[in-house]
Simulated scan of single mutants.
Amino acid sequence: MTGKPYKTRWKGSALALAIAVGITGVVTAALHARVSAEQSASLRAPMPVEQTAFIEQQDFQREQKFLGLVQAASRSQVGFEVPGAIAEVFVREGQAVEAGAALAKLDTQTLEARRRAAASAVDQASAELELASARRVRQAPLAESGAISAQLFDDTRLAEKAVESALAAAQARLDSLEIDLEKSVLRAPYAARIGRQLLDRGAVTQPGAPVFTLTSLENREAHIGVAVEQARYLTVGKNYPLQWRDRSLSAPLVAVRSDVNPVSMTTVAIFSLPGDVDAFDGEPVSVSVPRTEPETGGWLPLSALIEGERGIWTVLALRERDGNTVALREVVEVLHVSGDRAFVRGSVRDGDRLIADGVHRIAPGTAVAPLEAPGLENAVAHQES
């Protein structure tokens, strides 16, 4: 009776001991695995990174872009100088014409009739003048001999002059009608492209009423609004980079207007476009004007920047620590962005080496292996010298 409880207690103790030994083994194995992993991580090769240098400068150039429109050097509305009904139209909208090309013509039946009447009046006055001249010639010797009175000869002589004046007036009326007939054909004042046709065939027009709008084919210009504070740095005659469609142009500055738009506070800079620019009147065009900003800082690639909270930007600087190169965070302020680079200032120092790309994969304090950057050491050495 007394041996049975002892045997049961012995079995229970043996089971508890076995469980304790098992737990101890598992914990020991886990600790060995963790130590092994930490040793493996410590022996892992540093991550290779691209590097760049921060070269400090006292100012930087920024490109300011201003927008404007292409305009023809000459833009006008043309019409007839004489009244009449439009009989023919020789051109269509969008057509290019040479200087002097006929655009439209008036009905000239009335003018032709008046011209014929004026020509007849000239012929009649010419005949009357011829008769008066002959009479004066015949009477001249008679007046000298006293065969006729001086009064009669004076009448003959003055009658000739009156006929001369009548002939001149008749000729002037004929010339005026000839000019009106010539002006009954509307011609292009310069090489141009037809814009809008405002009156059609059969319409009765008055002197000065526009019939067509024209834009010159040559000497196209870019009229661009430029900020007043920037316009004073522009130089007439100097070439500036313009952007039209997908094409970059170099165009000289012709003039800067003296008036200022009170709303936009801009004035108009006028550039002469190259002759091969076949731009439409009113197309957009822009100019890039360089401007020097007196700010101390340096240029970095955008890929070197890390955006933080509340608009704070940081970079990863390469520092030497315990024989290793580690990445440490530095705070910078972005002053200007141009293309794929930014001009910054902050806690970085002149000549500092920074991680140029892949910064989001690297934690601060991580050991890294900077890759060789051709010319980097020379650039830093030159800056230091």
Rank of each mutant, 00 (worst) to 15 (best):
V78E: 03
A251K: 01
Q58I: 07
S176F: 15
G311D: 05
E182K: 13
D155V: 11
A140L: 09
L198V: 11
S288Q: 09
A170M: 08
M47I: 08
P189V: 09
A231M: 02
A101F: 11
A118G: 08
Q61H: 10
T205R: 00
E221H: 10
S176D: 15
G358E: 13
V89A: 07
A159M: 12
A356D: 06
G346V: 08
R247S: 09
L354P: 01
A231E: 01
E307Q: 14
V287P: 00
F90K: 09
P252H: 03
A37F: 10
E333P: 00
G25E: 05
A304S: 14
L15A: 12
P207N: 11
S176K: 15
D246G: 08
E128C: 04
V260A: 07
R135F: 01
Q197V: 13
A363K: 08
L198T: 02
A159D: 10
T52G: 04
A169H: 12
A85I: 15
V368R: 04
E218G: 04
A29W: 04
A227V: 07
P284R: 10
G195L: 06
R345S: 12
S385K: 12
S264G: 07
A169T: 15
Q77L: 09
V97D: 01
L174P: 01
V268P: 00
Q61R: 13
P370D: 03
R114K: 13
A222F: 02
Y233V: 07
V49Q: 04
T213F: 03
G22I: 05
A134D: 14
A72I: 07
T156G: 11
V348Q: 00
R245F: 04
Q61Y: 10
L111V: 13
S40P: 08
L253M: 09
G308S: 09
P262S: 09
R62I: 03
A118D: 05
K4F: 12
I306P: 01
A367L: 14
T267V: 12
V122L: 15
G68M: 00
D352I: 04
